[in-house]
Write a protein that binds this DNA or RNA. Structure first.
Length: 416
DNA sequence: GCCCTCATAAACAAGG
DNA sequence: ACCTTGTTTATGAGGG
């Protein structure tokens, strides 16, 4: 198969682009924008007014922010809401959507699938509503899609487990407290490795299988949530205290976007970027089976609370409620959430879905309603936030004019 | 020939 | 005791 290459975040951290992924929240906090991000940014959005809006209180900044607020509200225009649900089964793709997932594996039912175990596992996990599956369900999915394994020697399950264990692309998430080392952990795809898996999938003969993948909708939508605005304001307070210049919202927006891009591992555009900072990894570090490095890498990539904390950090600017998302995408859930009795679940795969997922899993209509409702709510919040900003700006303008009039009156009195 | 990826097998431990 | 899950090690095939 095509090599599932370049999967070492540790190595990636050596490249400038890697920082975008590895320490995004830190980038935010540091207030430094990697040049690579700047370069990758559409120039049109980089208005050359950095000096002009250096001040947080600059009205140009505010004006721009309000423009952005109107331009980036959730789902209100332009940016399509990508549903990760329409293609869970690959068949019910709405008209106008991406091409159907053709189930290439079903074409060659008894032939050995052209995918490596890593990709099979990846596909299985990505097919699940919550992007998390226990080993058993991964078996089932593979068996379901590739009857080849029904007759294949039983060793393939060993291989699956072997892959899950050894491949850093996959993270184990304990279902509940008492089962730290017990049975039935859930396996997720490490978001950091998704681009690599995607890339590997693209190299497969049946690249149409990619269409089952659905990118997380929230971050790259570029919306300006109140959380985001608050976050910028808070950061600017800190920066001011530190004696640094406040960060213009525009810059923050750009960072947010750059981060979102980095987080959006499904972005094939990014995958094909020439600098390929997010995906260019030292092949030596990829999927390393050598005993010495595996130990070290596992320490780095797994023991760190399965990177989940970093994922959470990465969502810094996004309302917590949207971490899981109404659509269930990017399903890194809490242990409580994932603690589901899958054995008794009559829904099968869809049984892993949260309530929101369950709402949407049938025909997609209720899900759209929910999402629409959510978008409206967010829009309202955005409007409120914009209103608050305008209010503040108004106060500032009033104060400014008062001060200036007072000054002129002072001067007049002195002349007299 | 070397290195890498991947598949496969096997041993072992822990838990249900 | 048996099965499942998870980890680790070893080995070989295939490709660049």
């Amino acid at each position: 198969m095509g090599p599932v290459i370049g999967m070492t975040p540790e190595k990636r951290a050596e490249t400038p682009g890697a920082e975008k992924v590895a320490g995004l929240s830190q980038i935010y906090k540091m207030g430094s924008l990697p040049e690579a991000v700047d370069a990758a940014r559409p120039k049109a959005t980089v208005v050359d007014s950095e000096s002009a809006d250096d001040e947080l209180t600059n009205l140009n900044w505010l004006h721009e922010s309000t423009n952005l607020l109107t331009n980036f509200s959730f789902g209100s225009e332009g940016l399509p809401i990508v549903s990760p649900l329409y293609d869970i089964e690959g068949d019910d793709v709405p008209s106008g959507g991406p091409p159907c997932y053709q189930n290439p594996e079903k074409k060659s039912a008894t032939a050995k699938p052209p995918y490596s175990f890593s990709l099979l596992i990846y596909m299985a996990i990505e097919h699940s509503p919550n992007k998390c599956l226990p080993v058993k369900e991964i078996y089932s999915w593979i068996l379901d899609r590739f009857p080849y394994f029904a007759t294949a020697p039983t060793g393939w399950k060993n291989s699956v487990r072997h892959n899950l264990s050894l491949n850093k692309c996959f993270q184990k998430v304990e279902r509940s407290h008492g089962k730290v080392n017990g049975k039935g952990s859930l396996w997720c795809v490490d978001p950091e490795y998704k681009p690599n898996l995607m890339q590997a999938l693209k190299k497969q003969p049946f690249s149409s299988a990619l269409t089952f993948y659905t990118p997380p909708a929230s971050p790259q939508s570029g919306s300006l949530s109140p959380h985001f605005l608050n976050s910028v304001l808070k950061q600017n307070q800190v920066r001011t205290l530190k004696g640094e210049k406040p960060l213009p919202l525009k810059t923050a927006m750009q960072k947010k976007r750059s981060y979102s891009n980095a987080f959006n591992h499904a972005s094939t555009v990014r995958l094909q970027e020439s600098d390929s900072s997010a995906t260019s990894i030292d092949p030596k570090e990829d999927h390393n089976y050598s005993a010495s490095s595996v130990a070290a890498q596992r320490c780095a990539s797994r023991s760190s609370v399965s990177s989940l904390s970093s994922v959470d950090e990465a969502y810094d600017f996004i309302p917590k409620s949207s971490h899981v998302g109404s659509d269930g995408s990017e399903g890194f859930r809490s242990e409580e959430d994932t603690d589901v009795d899958y054995e008794d679940d009559p829904l099968g795969d869809s049984g892993y879905a949260s309530q929101a997922c369950a709402d949407t899993s049938d025909k997609g209509q209720p899900g759209k309603k929910m999402r629409k409702q959510l978008c409206q709510e967010i829009d309202e919040e955005l409007k409120e936030a914009a209103g608050s900003l305008l209010h503040l700006a108004g106060i500032r303008t009033c104060l400014g004019s008062l001060i200036s009039t007072a000054k002129t009156q002072n001067q007049k009195q002195r002349k007299k």
